[in-house]
């Protein structure tokens, strides 16, 4: 079991957004979390990555058996948790190389490894760039600065490749992507999949799931997971929209 969420309540300021989430992710699984806008998908991703603007009021999260809520964001990262941001931030003046080098070496230090030499690091960058198929020019620029929406998302997948996470959470990674970019992102994710890694793919639309096949699909609605099923659920949602789920919930 890589992730176990028990009865998670969380919110921003006075507003409660997550109202009792329960979720279990096993090693090797791909989970999709779907849901209408405002259902709490990104808040859940933020809680998992440790964003301080979100306050957890109740519940617990275990990551590889450890209490995730006690860990700092960087500790979570070094423990192998990766968040692909919905809106990757721009960091002017900081080159991708400097940024990733710092990140990779922090991860290595955590695992008791020597830092990579400059040439080994650049070699790694090159390999991963090819693997995820991003333009090598992007890596010479400042982090996300002046990147298009698609480039920013591809850059997230590239970073994921560099850091080889155990659990990757991709928050609306498909939003703002054209179909080619979507394919590149999805291929990247699929190539990076290892037997010992798990993923949570958060999305509003089914189309990403044409390329990334989930083992389990959850529907998040009003801060709760209201339905859990196999990948066929995604197709059903695509066909019928979210209204029937809302009706079902309201009836109960």
């Amino acid at each position: 079991m890589i992730l176990k969420i028990n009865n998670l309540h969380a919110g921003i300021g006075e507003k409660t957004i997550l109202k009792g989430i329960n979720l279990e992710v096993r090693t090797g699984e791909v989970h999709a979390i779907m849901g209408p806008n405002g259902s709490g998908k990104s808040t859940l991703a933020s809680v998992l990555a440790g964003r301080e603007t979100v306050t957890v009021t109740e519940g617990e999260i275990f990551y590889n058996g450890k209490n995730l809520l006690e860990m700092s964001p960087e500790e979570r990262s070094k423990e192998g948790l990766f968040l692909g941001f919905q809106y990757p931030i721009e960091i002017p003046g900081v080159s991708m190389v400097a940024f990733m080098k710092a990140a990779v070496n922090e991860h290595r230090k955590y695992r008791g490894l020597e830092p990579l030499s400059a040439s080994d690091f650049l070699k790694l960058m090159r390999e991963k760039k090819e693997l995820v198929g991003i333009d090598s020019k992007l890596a010479n620029r400042s982090v996300n600065e002046g990147f298009s929406g698609g480039e920013k998302k591809k850059n997230e997948i590239f970073q994921m490749a560099m850091l080889e996470p155990k659990l990757s959470i991709l928050d609306e990674t498909d939003s703002g992507l054209d179909i080619d970019a979507l394919r590149i992102v999805a291929n990247g994710v699929n190539k990076l999949k290892r037997p010992d890694s798990s993923s949570i793919v958060i999305t509003h639309y089914q189309r990403l799931l044409d390329y990334i096949v989930p083992d389990i699909v959850h529907v998040l609605y009003d801060g709760r997971i209201v339905k859990t099923s196999g990948k066929e659920l995604a197709l059903e949602l695509e066909e019928k929209g979210y209204n029937w789920i809302q009706k079902e919930v309201n009836q109960n």
Binding site: A49, G50, R51, E52, S72, P73, E74, E75, R76, S77, K78, L83, F85, P88, I89, I91, P92, G93, V94, S95, A98, F99, A102, A103, E106, H107, Y110, S142, Q159, L163
Partner: peptide, 27 residues
């Protein structure tokens, strides 16, 4: 947000500030 982004990638806050400030001053 920038610091948090760095934290999420495993870079501690002091180093993140170092990185960001160096980027800011790079010119």
């Amino acid at each position: 947000d920038q610091i948090f982004y760095c934290n999420q990638r495993g870079i501690n806050t002091d180093d993140a500030i170092g990185l960001i400030v160096n980027g800011y001053a790079r010119e």
